[in-house]
Design a protein around this nucleic acid. Structure first.
Lengths: 185, 185
DNA sequence: CTATGATTCAAACGAACGTATGAATCATAG
DNA sequence: CTATGATTCATACGTTCGTTTGAATCATAG
């Protein structure tokens, strides 16, 4: 079995898809643009991934698998160190958002490109992408929400969820970095 | 000149476009979907607006003209009342975001539909839309930034701009309301 | 009522899209 | 070296896209 060329082709497609989906969105990025940027044949995407939908899911899975594991690992580590006592909210924030931002410095894990793709995709209109992302995030999100509930027992849960949403929004917008409102300075 | 039918057709197209661009994004919304939802002929969009690009710009202009004027009016009114003294930051925040949120209760001005469209479009991948939005926002944004600079003379300007961005992100994400991370509760 | 200009309509255009096909090319096992 | 299965390739398929066209229909002015 020839593995070397396959691995090259697959990764070049994933890299090109990551960058182009970030720059032009899912619908705005054509297969021909991806394959020409990756310097592979047009049919390569369908051969290796099956479809355009499967491709973008694999683009995310490649990065999110690590991010999910790392976020979970950090949280469990902090909880073990706390030995039953509730964590400080700032610890949980750092576990969730700090882990994400440290990913931006790691070019091997997608760097700022993937971060901006992720930030923009949280408001992506395509239904199947949002559904897929929600599913990928579900387990870790629930664990972090539970951690916040324990750390802030006097704050209503609905209020905590709102604050979490606001942090997510502020982060993803800053990350997406469209500068839509920079207005020239 | 027949004005009655034209006005109906134009507004029905704008309403359908507003709702569909919100739900499926710019690239994800076809002319045929818009015209069938608006119950007008396929060629009506090109006849009345010229192109799909011009249509979405008109969808935004219809609402943003009022929002820009209202935000400016509120700010000037507060500054006049303050008679030269700096405004409280919370006043400026309310002038900018309060005005936006009050728009959500006004169905005549687009209500939550336009608000969600606006929230999602701030991270829209299409270049020309972000450029257009930045241009529409530029004047008012600069005036509000200046107001913040005066209200918070001891805070570095770059820090103020960051905080403004975070507020914008938190607001637009909460407004967009994709629930991408609701994870089922 | 008739003429005129604005608007609507059905139909078609060429281009771009995602995907499928079958032959050519490659790396490796025997 | 030859056979085999994986991969790449040029090409084409059917669909959908935004836009255009010219005739039909409408409302109003004279």
């Amino acid at each position: 079995m020839a593995e070397i060329r396959t691995a090259d082709t697959r990764e070049r497609i994933l890299d090109a898809g990551e960058r182009l989906f970030m720059a032009h969105g899912y619908e705005g990025t054509s297969m021909r643009l991806i394959t020409s940027e990756a310097a592979v044949n047009l049919a390569a995407v369908n051969y290796h991934f099956g479809s355009k939908e499967s491709l973008i899911q694999e683009v995310f899975r490649r990065r999110l698998d690590w991010l999910n594991e790392e976020r979970m690992r950090v949280l469990v580590e902090m909880e073990d160190a706390a030995a039953g006592k509730p964590l400080k909210p700032s610890q949980i924030v750092d576990g969730f958002f700090g882990t994400l931002l440290r990913m931006a410095d790691d070019e091997e894990r997608g760097g700022v490109t993937f971060l901006r793709l992720l930030g923009r995709t949280l408001t992506e209109p395509s239904e199947f992408i949002r559904t897929f992302l929600a599913h990928e995030y579900a387990t870790v999100m629930d664990r972090y929400k539970e951690a916040f509930f324990k750390a802030l027992p006097d704050v209503p849960k609905a209020e905590i969820v709102w604050r979490f949403h606001f942090m997510l929004g502020a982060t993803s917008y800053a990350i997406a970095g469209t500068d839509a409102l920079a207005s020239g300075d």
